[in-house]
């Protein structure tokens, strides 16, 4: 019986794993209500045939596949039709507007003042005065637009011209060059080796190394503090 249980558990795990992959990547906190419901039911359904050996495995797998298909159809409909999206996902609700808290909206959301304040504090706002708009999104997260005096200062506000950022690309991970990224950045292994030799390091000594398109290489060795190396690499616009 033990081996039966082991094999059944592995089969169910693989089925649920593959179907969740099929359903798409979403973090738990970002789930829409219908996705949350389906995930809960699938979790419950998966455990029944896993432990109950008298039940055919298919009795557990069929409902799980059916729910995945329902999920696929609902996702497809919400992608293709705005009306369906509103019906399936609901719509964002403004809970704070320039006049203050909208109590009717809070009631519609089954939220109280404390829930709202907790969410605001989670967003980094401890005072209602700082908030111009707060919107409860369909996935249950609160997004906040602060009043201008309380908004973080950025280069645009300060009328400063700054250089565009670039996405750093990982060259070495856990002592191994990341081939895909080397190809993407059009960097060869010798380039890395030459630059890390300057620091008296070997590939195996490095946990993580990244480079940006200005040629600045950030290297984190396994021991000791991180190092920054300015290289002659100019990968502007390559990724």
């Amino acid at each position: 019986m033990t081996f039966t249980l082991i094999i059944r558990s592995i089969i169910i795990y693989l089925v649920v794993f593959l179907l969740l992959r099929f359903m798409g990547k979403r973090q738990l906190g970002e789930m829409q209500p219908f996705e949350f419901v389906i995930t809960l039911i699938i979790a419950d359904l998966a455990t029944i045939p896993m432990a109950e050996t008298a039940l055919p495995l298919i009795h557990g797998i069929i409902p799980i596949i059916t729910l995945s298909l329902v999920h696929f159809i609902l996702t497809f409909l919400s992608m293709k039709s705005v009306k369906m999206r509103k019906l399936i996902n609901g719509k964002p609700i403004i809970v704070i507007n320039p006049n203050g808290i909208d109590y009717k909206s809070l009631e519609r959301l089954n939220m109280n003042f404390n829930d709202l304040m907790e969410n605001l504090r989670g967003c980094g706002y401890f005072n209602l005065e700082e908030v111009l708009y707060a919107i409860m999104q369909t996935n249950g997260t609160l997004t906040v637009l602060p009043r201008a005096p309380f908004a973080p200062l950025n280069a645009n506000n300060a009328k400063i011209i700054v250089e565009e950022n670039s996405l750093p690309i990982i060259l070495i991970s856990e002592g191994k060059p990341v081939k895909e990224n080397l190809e993407l950045a059009q960097i060869d292994a010798n380039f890395i080796l030459n630059n890390i030799k300057k620091l008296h390091l070997n590939l195996n000594d490095i946990v993580y190394a990244v480079i940006n398109n200005k040629g600045c290489m950030y290297i984190q060795p396994k021991s000791g503090s991180y190092k920054v190396v300015e290289t002659n690499y100019n990968g502007d616009g390559k990724w």
């Binding site: 099929f22 069929i62 059916t66 298909l69 497809f76």
Partner: peptide, 15 residues
């Protein structure tokens, strides 16, 4: 995904 969904759907109908 649509192809996978169709395959799953056909499998369910088949079973």
């Amino acid at each position: 995904r649509t192809i996978i969904a169709l395959v799953l759907f056909i499998s369910l109908i088949g079973i």
